[in-house]
Design a protein around this nucleic acid. Structure first.
Lengths: 225, 225
DNA sequence: ACCTGAACACCGTTCAAGT
DNA sequence: ACCTGAACACCGTTCAAGT
């Protein structure tokens, strides 16, 4: 802006990812355009291509950097290790909801993604699984965690921060047309009677409780294999 | 094209969705633009907005129509019903890989999506689950199936038809740098020793076998709850 | 009601040029 | 090597107008 073109080194991969994340947080997926990222760091749009080959690379690097912030420890029993990892990912994601949608689309090939896979293999080995079963199980855990988080994120395509959990459950409840828990006389009519009867639980799908319930079923299934 | 503007009724929701699906199949997600869909059905871009409020509605309707083609029967034991549904979705999706990515992003609110949810609740009720557990379990099954399919689809962001399974596994194997099954002397060095050792199994993640293994673990966990 | 042309406000990416 | 301005080939969506 001040000076003329030339080798100025005003940019960093980090600075680009910071700007992309800020735009993602404020305006959702569609706000994270190359042009807006460039504007945010005060540079011409095409300058970004000096640091990343294309937009997918920027978003992929963003996802991998995010996964690098996740903390996990090997000190506890194997189930607790995996639960701890899953909860930590989910907690950190709640501050950056738009990143959750990117988790499924990026190719999962970054170094921090590999580190998480390695951690899962360790935990499952500690759980007594044979190497092949541990490998299959680690992928299952990833499918569950990423799937659950992406589905939660899909529920709130609107930009901005994720509303509090209680609010999101209330929104689901209203969307399903349930005011009272409807526990008295089950209205088993209409096209989808079971779905209507289950509405109170369905409203709870986006809750931490449902997330952990599902994870525990997955871990039960793995432990029994 | 031939006549002048006016109430011609040359379009149908069905025709628009047909064109969108064809573009999706040929050119992947980015090919399914409103402008290209309109061109494919021989109409001005904005004519599409007479039938759908926006692009998201077009893609949402496409997903729901796709889920309407899925077949499921209530004749078998509950586990077989759910396995049959999952396999049928996966099989039909292999002809339309780009639709898999849309499964996670659309809000899952269409009538055919509800019908599948209802079917799952029936099967789980037949499996002896209490209503609340059945509701939670039905969501878990959906998370697993949709997550697994979306993750498979993310592996092939290139447009065009999905390569045969054997080819995709070979591609994964090469990407991981595994030529031989490496079962002889485990190279437990480098940054991610377990990941390297598990590479042969990891190459198999995109297989039907892995898909069903994961589903069976999920169903085991549900049955034990 | 259903379609049109034209426009608005954007995109990702490429290219030749400057330092 | 790193950045620029300018351009290319697109987007989704809106609006006033025609029939």
């Amino acid at each position: 802006m001040v000076g003329r073109p030339g080798p100025r080194r005003v940019l960093t991969e980090e600075a680009i990812l910071d700007a992309a994340l800020a735009l993602l947080d404020e305006g959702g997926l569609e706000a994270a355009s190359i042009r807006r990222i460039a504007a945010a760091v005060g540079v011409a749009p095409n300058a970004v291509y000096t640091y990343f080959p294309d937009k997918a690379a920027v978003l992929g690097a963003l996802v991998d950097r995010f996964l690098g912030t996740v903390e996990y420890s090997s000190a506890r029993p194997w189930r607790e290790r995996i639960r701890g990892l899953a909860v930590d990912v989910r907690t950190r994601l709640s501050a950056h909801p738009a990143v959750a949608s990117l988790l499924m689309s990026s190719p999962m090939g970054g170094p921090n993604t590999l580190a998480i896979g390695e951690f899962l293999l360790e935990a499952l080995d500690a759980g007594g699984l044979a190497p092949d079963a541990a490998a299959r199980a680690s992928y299952l855990v990833m499918v569950y965690v990423l799937g659950a988080l992406a589905l939660e994120a899909a529920e709130h395509p609107d930009p901005g921060p994720l509303p509090p959990e209680a609010e999101r459950i209330t929104a689901r409840r209203e969307a399903l047309g349930v005011e009272a828990p409807a526990g008295d006389a089950a209205e088993t009519e209409g096209p989808f009677p079971r779905t209507v009867a289950a509405a109170p639980v369905i409203a709870d799908y986006v809750s931490t409780a449902q997330f952990l319930w599902g994870l525990d079923r997955v871990l039960d299934g793995i432990a029994a294999s």
